[in-house]
Design a protein around this nucleic acid. Structure first.
Lengths: 217, 217
DNA sequence: CTCGACCTTGACCATACGGTCAGAAAACGA
DNA sequence: TCGTTTTCTGACCGTATGGTCAAGGTCGAG
């Protein structure tokens, strides 16, 4: 039972199949919701027989949970930009950049997370109450410190964080609506850049931390 | 076949039952998604036998479409605050107030809309392409006028609107997450007021239109 | 080479779902 | 009151779904 991580062909197959299944599941769960997704659809998209899915993931719930965990970890990782910053312009600016980039590259994961939370977080409630709560309180403390140091206006840290999440994830979760209003075409690279800049400039100025106003304060 | 709107007992019963069913459906669709919702669950919540639902609404899709239309009309109505305003402080301020109030009073409808759009708007794509597109372009024109008149900073009108939608609807769609981070308790009246003020102050300052800065400009 | 562990898969099962229907009950107009 | 229209509802049906299983195939260690 030892050495389960050797680079044998079996392990490669297992890893590759799990990757295939998770990618297909992320897309199907995002597009159909948990209830609307079917194991058959996921199997077809992964190019595997349905029974094979149940070999790697015992139940639909187990597969779903893995998908949700993935995006959560990506978000947590993105938050590091927040910490190594000296002030709100760099910290929040980099955080917005990172979250916007995730919305662009992982729109399915973002939708699955949104769906999960909207339905009352039946699967990941424990994450909300532990990891997310701790993370949020930590970042709120950073913001309070910036406020105390006069680096930004005295805004409520929690509502600022909610605003950051809402605005950045909106570009993934409501991407279809944005695409429709964009003439039916997905945002181009330039349009993504413009979106990023718009969000950053409004929020940074909104908290009294925009670069141009830095001298004024 | 005339006079279908007389105040007969039959019409009263019909109206009341449709109301009951739509309210139950809104809640169930919001909590379980379209795929996860079952007609039986909606029927139980409405206190009617399942067959009775199919008497008033032929199919699950038809019932769902009605629910989505409801919230869309509520939002369109709220947008009137935008139009009768002289400038961004009153216009956008009132719009945020109105949308926040809707998030507070109609969280289920907001979730159903979010779910629908996230899944690619299979049912209301035509609304997006007609009513919503026209509405958005009209409001964008108003914003451009305000910018031209020097009443606010030159921000991209579309991304500003996305930000307004994202931030206000977040309090409905992610209400469960916010509640969890609020110590497990729903926002109190005071906390809702604080949320409103936070959103308004950051955005209005962010677009260079905050009341305190009005004189500066 | 051989044996045991792991992987693959078509066929199958119980269940739950959306929707139907026939007939009973209630409300209505005259 | 009487005939007609509308409303109500338990029983029913075909289908699709999540999950199981047993048999066969593939791989790696010794």
């Amino acid at each position: 039972m030892a050495a389960p991580d050797r680079l044998t062909k079996r392990n490669a197959i297992r890893r590759e199949n799990e990757r295939l299944i998770l990618a297909a599941a992320e897309k199907v769960f995002a597009e159909a919701g948990f209830g609307g997704a079917t194991m058959q659809l996921i199997a077809d998209m992964a190019g595997l027989p349905k029974a094979n899915l149940h070999y790697y993931f015992a139940t639909k719930e187990e597969l779903y949970r893995k998908v949700v965990q993935q995006i959560f970890e990506i978000w947590l990782h993105a938050a590091k930009s927040f910490d190594k910053a000296a002030g709100p312009v760099e910290g929040i600016g980099a955080y917005i950049d990172a979250k916007m980039e995730i919305s662009r590259r992982h729109p399915f994961g973002s939708k699955v997370w949104a769906s999960e939370v909207m339905h009352g977080a039946p699967v990941i409630q424990d994450y909300l109450e532990t990891t997310l709560r701790d993370w949020t309180e930590g970042r709120a403390a950073v913001i309070r410190r910036w406020i105390a140091a006069g680096k930004m206006a005295p805004v409520d840290p929690y509502h600022l964080l909610y605003m950051l999440w809402a605005t950045t994830q909106h570009y993934a979760d409501f991407g279809h609506q944005i695409e429709t209003l964009n003439g039916g075409r997905p945002l181009s690279a330039q349009e993504w850049a413009r979106a990023k800049e718009s969000v950053k400039s409004i929020i940074l100025r909104g908290i009294g931390a925009s670069p141009s106003q830095a001298e004024v304060i």
